[in-house]
Simulated assay, not measured.
Amino acid sequence: MKLVHAGQLTTCTHLPYPPFQFERDGKIVGFDVALIDLVAAQLKVEQVIVDKPFETIKTGADLNAGTCDIGAAGMTITDERKQNLDFSDPYFDAGQALLVRRGIGATSLEEVQSRQLKLGSQASTTGEEFAHRHGLDTQSFESSDAELNGLRTGQVDAVIQDYPVALNWLKDPANAAKFDLAANLSTGEQYGFAVQKDGNPRLQQLINKVIQQAKQDGTYQKLYEQWIGPMPAGVDGR
């Protein structure tokens, strides 16, 4: 197995992106982190995480530069990204959420547009692309934290963000008191882990094996419930 640094599995991610990867008590944790820890265990090495811009992860630049072995960043599999990355099998079904400041009253992107409300998005994400495809201009923020802060400070009236990330924000009572989940936007998105294009097929195969095994032995459901919440009916946790 080819690794960029002997004795460790190096993961590129973009922090913070709870509940998938974020820092808690000085340690980087989350759903993605826990799943890649399973891959590292199979290799009998430790996972080491490198914080990189999402743009250089999704374009394959970090993998091509030998910065890391895996891109794990709550990353949606798209045809465009497949041109630059080799993805694992999907490990998470995701959609988008519209989160609005309480009192705004908007319940759809169409209403945000018709009322000329200010919409925020995270740069280079499928949520931002989804909004643009639907004819909305957005104020682009570099990170999910910056996007949430834009909503807090009134820079924007609403934000579009991956549904599980928005749900995680609302676990904070201070956020729950100020913001409303206005819409769950079904987009058919699925997350995948990425390796270098045509560069590491054995690692790609191992990741797929670990995902499949975790679903079969109950580990996937345990981690899902630990980091995300109750696993909805119909989710492929087998």
Rank of each mutant, 00 (worst) to 15 (best):
146 A>W: 00
118 K>N: 14
176 A>T: 08
38 L>V: 07
64 N>W: 01
2 K>A: 09
199 G>A: 11
212 Q>K: 15
190 Q>S: 11
208 N>W: 00
148 L>I: 01
38 L>D: 05
126 T>Q: 00
104 I>A: 12
25 D>E: 13
85 L>S: 04
130 F>S: 06
84 N>V: 04
65 A>M: 01
94 A>Y: 00
164 P>K: 08
103 G>T: 07
172 D>R: 13
232 P>E: 15
95 G>M: 00
175 N>I: 06
42 Q>N: 03
152 R>W: 10
51 D>G: 06
50 V>C: 05
39 V>F: 06
188 G>I: 13
79 D>P: 08
96 Q>P: 00
100 V>S: 02
162 D>A: 10
167 L>D: 05
234 G>S: 15
189 E>H: 15
77 I>P: 03
93 D>H: 13
187 T>K: 09
2 K>Q: 13
120 G>E: 07
172 D>T: 05
140 S>M: 05
216 Q>V: 13
51 D>C: 07
89 D>K: 03
170 L>F: 11
132 H>Q: 10
133 R>D: 06
213 Q>S: 05
111 E>P: 08
161 Q>W: 09
223 L>D: 00
49 I>R: 11
197 K>E: 02
53 P>W: 10
64 N>D: 10
164 P>L: 02
168 N>I: 09
1 M>T: 12
195 V>N: 04
171 K>L: 05
59 T>Q: 07
20 F>L: 04
220 Y>R: 10
63 L>F: 07
16 P>N: 12
75 M>F: 00
234 G>I: 12
82 K>A: 11
200 N>A: 13
199 G>S: 14
212 Q>A: 15
141 F>L: 10
51 D>T: 06
20 F>I: 08
235 V>Q: 15
97 A>Q: 10
177 A>L: 06
191 Y>H: 14
174 A>V: 06
225 E>Q: 06
43 L>M: 12
199 G>R: 04
190 Q>V: 04
1 M>P: 02
80 E>D: 15
156 V>F: 03
206 L>K: 05
123 A>K: 13
155 Q>Y: 09
24 R>C: 07
44 K>N: 14
99 L>N: 01
205 Q>F: 03
138 T>C: 15
21 Q>S: 11
119 L>H: 09
144 S>L: 15
35 L>D: 08
77 I>H: 09
125 T>M: 09
